[in-house]
């Protein structure tokens, strides 16, 4: 059951939702989603697990917590979306761009303990995290940033990288 898995990971119970629709009405990203948050929770409730995991909704959620703030049942869709992303990623159901983004992010955290933004963006482009049109569009911006001296290539790495990796390995199998 996906719903119970979500509850286990996020602590939020999708079944407790009354389906009032306040979340969807409040969602800034609703216009690009396959399903609004309410609908997604409903699909979870009735056990349409595949639809849930395949929908783009969870990847579009901007984690703005607007739904969470307004929910009359004190349920957080945002946190449910995190849990769903965890599960989807484990099952490798993930849009290409997102995959590049998250993998690179994780790599940075595990390698350096921090995110080195300039390097991160470079790697992202190489990994296919950006469409060609986006790259073209962003070139101008890149040049500007370079001129301003905002892009620095020095890598910062923390001493505790070892510990971070250890923590990661401990929690790697929490999601099945």
């Amino acid at each position: 059951m996906l719903a119970s898995q979500v509850q286990k990971i996020s602590g939020e119970n999708p079944l407790a939702c009354y389906q009032c629709g306040n979340c969807t009405g409040s969602c800034p990203m609703e216009f690009v989603m396959d399903y609004g948050p309410r609908r997604l929770i409903h699909l979870l409730q009735i056990g349409y697990d595949d639809e849930v995991l395949k929908s783009n909704t969870i990847w579009i959620c901007a984690s703005c917590y607007n739904c969470t703030y307004r929910c009359p049942r004190k349920i957080s869709f945002t946190r449910m979306a995190f849990a769903l992303k965890n599960i989807a990623m484990k099952k490798n159901i993930i849009p290409k761009k997102c995959k590049a983004f998250y993998e690179t992010f994780l790599k940075h955290v595990l390698n350096y303990g921090r995110l080195n933004e300039s390097l991160f963006i470079n790697e992202l482009v190489l990994k296919g995290g950006k469409d060609f049109s986006e790259i073209v569009r962003d070139i101008n911006l890149g040049i500007k940033l370079w001129r301003k001296g905002k892009l620095k290539m020095k890598i910062s790495k923390i001493d505790g990288v070892k510990d971070i990796v250890k923590l990661y390995n401990l929690t790697k199998d929490v999601i099945k």
Partner: peptide
């Protein structure tokens, strides 16, 4: 559904609300 946003202009209220039966 529940009204989620209210914007007012010249005395007219614009409400956005999810019609949960129509999605």
């Amino acid at each position: 559904g529940k009204v989620a946003n209210v914007t007012e202009k010249n005395g007219v209220l614009k409400l956005s609300v999810e019609n949960t039966l129509e999605n």
